[in-house]
Simulated scan of single mutants.
Amino acid sequence: MAKTALFVIDIQDELALDPQTRIPDASRICDAGTALLDRARSYIDKGRSNGAPSDLEIVFVQHEETDGTLIKGSKPWELVFKPREEDDHEMLVGKQTQDTFESNPELASQLKQSGVKRIVTFGIQSDCCVQATSKGALGAGFDVTVLSGAHSTYDTEEKKAVEIERDIDEELQEKGANLLPWEQWYP
């Protein structure tokens, strides 16, 4: 059975909740994350109650730094959305680089061994970890879908965050990723 892994990328306290440091569209990303996780967990739970094996896994990605603000164990490092305890369809993956697959060299083969063929990505930051992890998944041979409107970043002097989001969507699509408005994604 071909499985899908929903990657929830770096939705952490500093980037999404702290009023001093959060990205401008943090509330939109948190609202999308809540809806997406509700859908995914309902789907998994429904399959579980029917005794059917699930074809969906949820991967929570958490960035950590040795020099910076996202120090493991600190408040800024904490996840907004956490995996459910003892749920074999949810996993936590730490990373030290923008690309989750680069930080975790065995992750691609681990996912493939469990039957994962498709990866769906959303989170923070569009132009850093969402972009790099999506490219890493493509490079590892997965079919990748990026959920438009469910990833964002900081404004720069040159561009607003929403412009950067669109640029990243276009770039990832050119590299082979599928784009889907997050509101339309259902497992």
Rank of each mutant, 00 (worst) to 15 (best):
D155K: 08
W182Q: 03
D88K: 07
L138Y: 11
A5Y: 12
K159E: 10
A177N: 11
A5N: 04
E174M: 05
R28Y: 08
S74Y: 11
L17S: 15
D25N: 13
I124R: 04
E165I: 07
Q12K: 01
N178H: 12
L107H: 00
S103G: 12
A108V: 08
N50Q: 15
L36Q: 04
F101W: 04
L172S: 06
D18V: 03
P105F: 09
A108C: 02
E85C: 00
L92I: 06
V146P: 05
I168T: 11
E86R: 12
T100P: 00
P76V: 10
D45M: 03
T69W: 09
D99P: 00
K135D: 05
Q110D: 13
P19L: 11
D13F: 08
Y186D: 02
G136C: 09
G33Y: 03
V8Y: 08
S42Y: 04
W77L: 07
G115V: 02
V59K: 02
K117R: 14
E102W: 10
E170N: 10
R28K: 12
D38L: 05
K95I: 02
Q12I: 05
F81S: 01
D155G: 07
Y186A: 10
S134I: 01
D169G: 04
T97H: 14
L36R: 05
R22M: 15
R39N: 14
V93G: 04
K82C: 08
E85N: 05
I71C: 03
P187G: 15
D99C: 10
T66R: 09
